[in-house]
């Protein structure tokens, strides 16, 4: 489904080079629910951007759904994003001037679907997230949890091969977060692959597999857990990270 081999991402300025990802390797199988965690600045967002074809990378190979997407043109990248990837953002990223139906229609219009097909998909997606009755409402008329459900509906409407969720519950209270998480689990159970970047260890535990990114590399999770247990007695996060890298 998703295969990243020796991916590196280097940000260069005149003075410094920052290695956001280094020799990053990851395989995600179809139907998996993978949680990606890691401390701030570890490279989670860079990973998410690269996985979602939102930005390019410096070295390595990336295969998505069997296609090498390492060197796609801007237009091809946009088409692949539109067709194969559903995005769920921490801040929902709904367009405030458009009602729910129009928001969900946005990626469908870029795909070139007919009005009839768009309507069918919008209704289906809103039903899936339990907001079919509010399709003419504006995002500002909804609660945060409802807005995130609309964002999920938007991601689902294009029937993508996998969902990329960036801190999907980061802006929600615990009740709403639980509801959104349950919704994601249901979507995953229906067969959609999900990669979720999160800070929340409790949410991460609910995923089938956890990936820890530390200093731009995938950290061995077993080792990480052992280090975490050890560091708990020392109370040092720095040490935990140092151990994980070591």
């Amino acid at each position: 489904m998703l295969s990243m081999k020796n991916i590196s991402k280097v940000f260069k300025t005149d003075l410094v080079e920052t290695h956001a990802l280094r020799d990053f390797n990851l395989e995600v199988s179809e139907g998996e629910f993978v949680a990606v965690t890691g401390p701030s600045g570890s490279g989670k967002t860079t990973f998410l951007n690269i996985a979602g074809l939102l930005e390019g990378f410096t070295h390595g190979d990336y295969f998505l759904d069997g296609i090498n997407v390492s060197n796609l043109s801007d237009n091809k990248s946009a088409a692949v994003r539109n067709e194969k990837i559903g995005f769920i953002f921490q801040g929902f990223n709904l367009i405030p001037d458009l009602n729910l139906a129009e928001n969900i229609e946005v990626p469908l219009r870029y795909r070139g679907f007919s009005a009839k097909e768009r309507n069918r998909r919008v209704e289906q997606a809103l039903e899936q997230v339990g907001l079919a009755a509010r399709m003419k409402h504006l995002p500002t008329q909804l609660s945060g949890g409802q807005q995130q459900r609309v964002a999920i509906a938007r991601a689902l409407a294009g029937e993508p091969r996998f969902l990329l969720a960036d801190e999907p519950t980061g802006n929600l209270d615990s009740l709403m977060a639980r509801q959104v998480m349950e919704l994601l689990e249901n979507i995953n159970q229906a067969g959609t692959t999900i990669i979720m970047v999160t800070h929340d260890p409790e949410l991460a535990r609910r995923a089938q597999r956890n990936i820890q990114i530390v200093d731009g590399q995938v950290c061995d999770f077993t080792m990480y857990q052992a280090n975490a247990a050890r560091s708990a007695s020392h109370g040092s996060v720095d040490k935990l990270v140092a151990n994980a890298q070591g």
């Binding site: 939102l54 801007d74 237009n75 994003r81 990223n93 367009i95 946005v106 990626p107 870029y110 795909r111």
Partner: peptide
């Protein structure tokens, strides 16, 4: 700006 970025993420070409 963010809306344009979102549209691009959702599949909008330049």
């Amino acid at each position: 700006t963010k809306q344009i970025g979102t549209r691009r993420a959702l599949g909008a070409k330049k």
